[in-house]
């Protein structure tokens, strides 16, 4: 930058004179999902050498199934983090919604699809509660969701009275997302499909609608967004409610995946979703990132866990690897952010 100082008059000329790292930086700046995509490719490539079973259709299908729940919940977490927020209660909301779905169907004999809608309402309301505390009571998202994480967990346990709704008791409609269908030699659950649909829908909305732009603008600089005439509180409120809705759909995926509804399931989801989003290149400072990156992030974690198991590594090393990945991803984000000046 220093020796090219006179070139700022001419942006095109300025661009051509930049060094390779600077060009990489601006490329990653523009397409933040590139680095997780590279990490995923390298991981799949490398791990397939350690175990020949790794790259088989059966195993890759298994990874997809394993990733479905975290991948689904990460969709909601992404839009929240894009607004420079965070949701520590997302897993608690999903488990709460799953209990509502399974229990109303089993004990109150409500038809499965109505139980599902009840769960969606509960999830959206829970997200709305977070949004209300953040926009109206003006509390920081971290504190709000730390509080509601405990509240929703407690409500779930109280409501469930510590009892799991077992596979034979769960309404068949609620188990639908666990059913498997085949594409060629791959065996995919409907839950994976639902997850992919959510990614497609949210990616579309973020990219092609005014609401999506307002989410990015609010996260990038809330004061600037307000001055531009965006009703930032309305945007934030809608983001937390949409995320709550997505967490409730995740509840459906979760029931299908574990074949039951347990108040103790999904405890790791809160932090795992943040891991997926961060590894996927979305900035915790808001305003930058893509929902596709989060899918890649979830896949990276899934691939690491599965591949390292097949390679015969202890589970502790998998956790270690995921930890290193998070640090790496955030370092890359910081480096990209520095490129502005």
């Amino acid at each position: 930058m220093t020796q090219t100082e006179p070139a700022v008059h001419d942006a095109a000329e300025f661009m051509d004179r930049r060094t390779f790292p600077a060009r990489m930086q601006s490329l990653l700046h523009r397409y933040p999902w590139i680095s997780p995509a590279l990490v995923l490719l390298i991981a799949v490539f490398t791990l397939s050498f350690f175990n020949q079973y790794f790259a088989t259709p059966n195993n890759l299908s298994l990874i997809a199934q394993q990733v479905a729940v975290v991948g689904s919940i990460a969709v909601g977490q992404t839009i929240i983090i894009l607004t420079a927020g965070i949701d520590l209660s997302c897993g608690a909301i999903a488990v709460f919604a799953s209990m509502v779905m399974a229990k109303t169907a089993f004990e109150n004999h409500v038809p499965g699809w109505i139980a599902f809608i009840l769960g969606l309402v509960v999830g959206t309301a829970a997200g709305g509660f977070n949004g209300y505390l953040i926009t109206k009571v003006k509390l920081p998202p971290f504190i709000v969701t730390l509080g509601t994480f405990n509240i929703f967990t407690a409500l779930t346990l109280l409501y469930a009275t510590g009892r799991t709704v077992r596979d034979t008791e769960v309404d068949p409609f609620l188990l639908k997302l666990g059913s498997i269908f085949s594409i060629g030699t791959f065996h995919i659950t409907v839950g994976v499909l639902v997850m992919l649909l959510m990614y497609a829908a949210v990616a579309f909305v973020l990219r092609y609608t005014a609401w999506g732009r307002h989410v990015y603008a609010t996260g990038g600089d809330i004061e600037a967004a307000r001055l531009a005439g965006i009703q930032v509180n309305r945007v934030l409120m809608s983001v937390y409610m949409v995320a709550g809705f997505i967490f409730a759909i995740t509840a459906w995926v979760l029931i299908g995946r574990v074949n039951a509804a347990s108040p103790n399931s999904g405890i790791d989801l809160n932090l795992d979703s943040i891991t997926a989003v961060v590894i996927g290149g979305t900035s915790l400072f808001g305003g930058r990132g893509t929902v596709v990156g989060s899918l890649l992030g979830a896949l990276i974690v899934g691939v690491f866990r599965n591949g390292l198991t097949l390679a015969g590594l202890d589970v502790y090393y998998q956790t270690l690897a995921v930890g290193l990945l998070i640090i790496f991803a955030v370092s890359v984000d910081q480096w990209i952010r520095r490129s502005k000046s």
Partner: peptide, 11 residues
């Protein structure tokens, strides 16, 4: 127009 460069940085 405000002095604070009121634009959305990532857009």
């Amino acid at each position: 127009v405000y002095q604070t460069l009121a634009v959305a940085p990532a857009l």
